[in-house]
């Protein structure tokens, strides 16, 4: 592993620390308690403690390109137990945000797609139209019949709506979304 200028971004630790409001990122001494309790670490390429290590060394590319940040469930177990008081879940959130802004979402295509569809629904209706979002998602990933058995069950229980519920002041949604940073 090379730590030369072309491989690392020495400012990345500081910018992530700033964006995620964490002032103890450099305190991490790699005890691995985050990884030990992480429910999804088994599916991660870099474990949570290794993501923090990548940040400490300035390996921006590796951190943003990891599968780990998209497998993170945002459960805050790491945050709750970190002996250095690092809000690791918040750091993961910020890495997802930066990855999306910089268009490096290769490992998180489905998550990003779902989030986009979800937010589009919220912008349009003020509330999320679950049926519509899921249907659009399944169509986009080329699995239109995904979860049909569940859909059948939900139909039976009249849990599926076919028209979105709209709030009265949908215009206010446009305002809230106006300053959203583009990705």
């Amino acid at each position: 592993m090379l730590l030369g200028k072309s491989q690392i971004d020495p400012g990345f630790l500081a910018s992530t620390a700033r964006a995620s409001g964490q002032d103890t990122l450099s305190h991490c001494y790699q005890c691995g308690k985050c990884t030990a309790g992480c429910p999804t670490a088994f599916a991660m390429d870099y474990k949570p403690n290794q993501i923090i290590r990548l940040l400490q060394l300035g390996h921006k590319e590796k951190a943003l390109g990891s599968r780990a940040i998209w497998v993170c469930a945002g459960c805050f177990t790491c945050t709750t137990r970190c002996p250095c008081g690092i809000d690791i879940a918040q750091v993961m959130d910020n890495l997802r945000i930066v990855a999306r802004q910089e268009g490096r979402t290769g490992q998180g295509k489905r998550a990003v797609l779902f989030n986009e569809l979800f937010l589009r629904s919220v912008r349009r209706n003020g509330r999320v139209f679950e049926t519509g979002v899921v249907a659009a998602f399944n169509l986009k990933i080329g699995k239109p019949l995904h979860d049909t058995e569940l859909a059948r069950f939900m139909l039976k229980g009249r849990k599926l709506r076919f028209v979105p519920v709209r709030i009265r002041k949908t215009a206010e949604m446009a305002g809230l979304f106006a300053k959203r940073k583009k990705g």
Partner: peptide, 12 residues
């Protein structure tokens, strides 16, 4: 006991 082996990068 749920721990981690940080030298292997695995959960234990």
């Amino acid at each position: 006991v749920k721990g981690a082996d940080t030298l292997l990068g695995e959960q234990v």
